[in-house]
Design a protein around this nucleic acid. Structure first.
Length: 698
DNA sequence: TTAGGGTTAG
């Protein structure tokens, strides 16, 4: 197995040029390799000039290599000054410079130099091509890559660089060209197979990877660690646990468990196939874990939406003194977004700033998403403005975030800006755009976007897009039209579509279509308690209490249990959880008293409890008590007594907000002069001065 | 020469 060669420099330093009296046979290894800094090199350089040895290209090139590559953490300035002083640089001098530019992440300069070499009629040698092709790979410079390919063919040094060519084409997104090169390659070389496999991985052709691996085994080509890593990546993406497990066994029986890279790939494979616990066990068995191994475990939990575990492992990682990098933080932030864990996410943002980490597209986008999902749109926009590069993901997160936070019009303004900047929207962008229309009540604009999506961008609407249209029509009270829209859908409507329609029936008290929606829902997802409750609420709101009870009984007969409402509030970094009529929480007495006082105060400001939201089996005063003890009222009451006046109260809850709580919270925001942000299962409600950002439709 | 971990929606 090939490993990267590391240059270990002896610690002996060169004190003065006078100590160098005679150059040995190989000055590069004995003297130049001892140079640790540019200052050391300067001394050797001066000596070379003094003794006129600098006219000997062999010495000068060795000096050049030290200046360009061997001295750690240095710029190319010194090397360039040496290079410019060479009268007629030969191919190896060019090679050193091209290699150094590619290594030092200036592939553009590498290609310019290659061009110069060509202009000066210096013939490339077999060592010129690999590093030049690497530069093309980095830049995804297909045209230049193809030119170099042609030159390679002409030069007759072809077969040696086939693997680098495969890599270059795959990196430039031309997997079919990579295949052609591979077809003309000797199939006995594991490197060629590995290059092709990693090419497929880069192009996300997961199935092809497995096919090629099969072929490899059929042909009896031996495989190595690198092969298995590519195959494991594909197993994870395809959820091919059988092959994944086979490789795991192979690794165990062949004593390959010492390889951090390989075991990390197995951990990742298990997590991506949905076996996070298995991934965790293997992760625990590793005797050395680097930042990638930790990140694989963290992202495994993050993708499985096991957010508590993400934060636990992240804490363990810090205890183990392994520094997180961008990838780690992206997974952590994405789980803070899911949890609405504002404090932890803010801490990560602070860490990013403290470590002066670059605000890349991915990191910036996930930070924006985190702030948006915590209801802090201004912070999300601040991050957006600071990002030097933005892609369609960043714009989509912004549009979606604004839409979910009740700023539909602003979301559409950003969509217009995005188009001005010629960023092509994708299918998810349109989910954001359509939900913005829905929140802003813009029916005609919504219809227009729905058409534009396929007409102007060739995006076929998916169920989610149809769902958005149903929401737009339903919210505007066009229930019959929404119903017809579903009937005419070219794809089968799913439960979410019918549920969206049902929610609009609840808001507009449409019994008939509500009943029809439930009929369909019962067939698609018979065990979903929320649907029965919505229909029961519709009956109750039009005074048909008996029918309301009947639906609830039907639900009970089927053995369906109500999902208990649960609200969370984070106070001083601690999370408090409330359930309706919760009497077990340690704060219950204090909280109930606070809730009582709160209700009294808002009643005198005009709040009327809405009995339609109470438990149907409750009577009279009990009905009132039942709604008064909904989990979000308890959480808000705790927030009111535990935070300073004027502080924003942030609640997240697992269900939709009920209309009584919605009404009560509006009045609370006015009476107590507090901004209250409630994140429910679908959207945000920003309550301020007696009104809500959702405009009373949710 | 080839290799492991990441972002939007549902």
């Amino acid at each position: 197995m090939a490993t990267t060669t590391l240059h270990h420099f002896p610690s002996k330093t060169i004190t003065s040029p006078t100590t160098i009296t005679q150059f040995p046979e190989n000055p590069k290894t004995l003297i130049l390799q001892q140079c640790k800094t540019t200052k050391d090199l300067n001394q050797v350089h001066a000596h070379l000039i003094k003794t006129r040895l600098h006219l000997n290209p062999r010495f000068t090139e060795n000096l050049l290599e030290s200046a360009a590559i061997l001295i750690p953490n240095t710029t190319m300035d010194y090397a360039l000054s040496i290079f410019r002083n060479i009268n007629e640089p030969d191919p190896s001098a060019y090679n050193v410079m091209i290699r150094a530019f590619t290594l030092k992440k200036s592939p553009q300069e590498a290609l310019i130099l290659y061009q110069k070499m060509h202009e000066n009629s210096v013939q490339p040698d077999p060592f010129t091509f690999p590093c030049t092709l690497k530069a093309c790979s980095r830049l995804r410079a297909l045209r230049e890559g193809e030119q170099i390919h042609a030159q390679i063919v002409k030069s007759g040094f072809g077969s040696k660089v086939n693997n680098t060519l495969i890599h270059m084409y795959a990196n430039c997104g031309k997997i079919e060209f990579a295949c052609k090169v591979f077809d003309g390659t000797s199939k006995s070389d594991v490197f060629a197979w590995n290059s092709m496999l990693s090419g497929y991985v880069r192009s996300e052709c997961w199935g092809e990877v497995l096919k090629l691996f099969d072929e490899m085994r059929d042909m009896g080509v031996g495989f190595d660690e690198v092969t298995l890593i590519s195959v494991l990546t594909s197993c994870g993406r395809l959820a091919n646990i059988e092959l994944g497990e086979w490789i795991h066994e192979y690794v165990e029986t062949n004593g390959l468990k010492g390889s951090v890279n390989l075991v990390t790939s197995i951990v990742d494979m298990y997590a991506k196939c949905g076996y996070v616990d298995k991934a965790r066990r293997l992760f625990e068995e590793m005797d050395r874990r680097d930042v990638v191994a930790w990140s694989a475990m963290i992202s495994g939990y993050s993708q499985a939406r096991k957010c508590k575990e993400v934060l636990d492992v992240f804490r363990d990682m810090q205890m183990a003194k392994v520094e997180p990098n961008e990838v780690t933080l992206v997974s952590v932030l994405s789980c803070c977004a899911v949890l609405g864990a504002l404090e932890t996410g803010k801490w990560v943002h602070f860490y990013v700033k403290k470590k002066r980490m670059e605000l890349t597209v991915t990191l910036g986008t996930v930070l924006m998403d985190f702030y948006a999902k915590c209801g802090l749109m201004e912070s999300a926009i601040e991050v957006f403005n600071k990002m030097p590069f933005k892609n369609v993901f960043s714009w989509t997160v912004l549009i979606q975030g604004l839409a979910n936070n009740g700023q539909g019009k602003r979301a559409l303004e950003f969509y217009a800006l995005m188009r001005e900047k010629s960023i092509e929207p994708n299918d998810v962008t349109f989910i954001g755009v359509l939900s913005a229309c829905s929140h802003a009540g813009l029916v005609d604009e919504g219809r227009e976007f729905f058409v534009s999506m396929s007409r102007d961008f060739g995006i076929d609407p998916r169920t989610e897009h149809y769902g958005c249209m149903v929401d737009i029509l339903g919210r505007a009270g066009l229930i019959e039209e929404a119903y017809q829209f579903i009937k005419n859908m070219p794809i089968q409507p799913n439960a979410v579509i019918w549920r969206t329609l049902l929610a609009s029936c609840r808001a507009h008290e449409n019994v008939e279509i509500g009943e029809e929606s439930l009929k369909n829902l019962v067939q698609l997802e018979p065990m979903h308690s929320g649907d029965y409750i919505l229909v029961s609420n519709i009956y109750a709101s039009v005074g048909r209490l008996e029918d309301a009870m009947k639906v609830m009984n039907q639900m009970r007969e089927k053995g369906i249990k109500k999902t208990p409402g649960c609200s969370l509030i984070e106070l001083d970094g601690e999370i408090y959880e409330f359930f309706a009529e919760d009497s077990v929480s340690p704060h219950s007495k204090e909280v109930y008293n606070a809730a009582e006082k709160m209700i009294k105060k808002i009643k005198s400001a005009g709040y009327m409890p809405n009995a339609a939201d109470a438990r149907l089996d409750a009577e009279g005063d009990d009905k009132e008590a039942s709604v008064a003890h909904h989990s979000e009222k308890l959480a808000i009451a705790l927030g009111l007594i535990k935070t300073r006046p004027g502080t924003t109260i942030r609640i997240s809850k697992n269900l939709r907000v009920c209309s009584d709580c919605h009404n009560a919270t509006k009045i609370i925001s006015k009476v107590f002069s507090r901004e209250i942000v409630v994140r429910d299962r679908n959207r945000f409600h920003h309550f301020k001065d007696g009104s809500c950002s959702c405009n009373d439709y949710w």
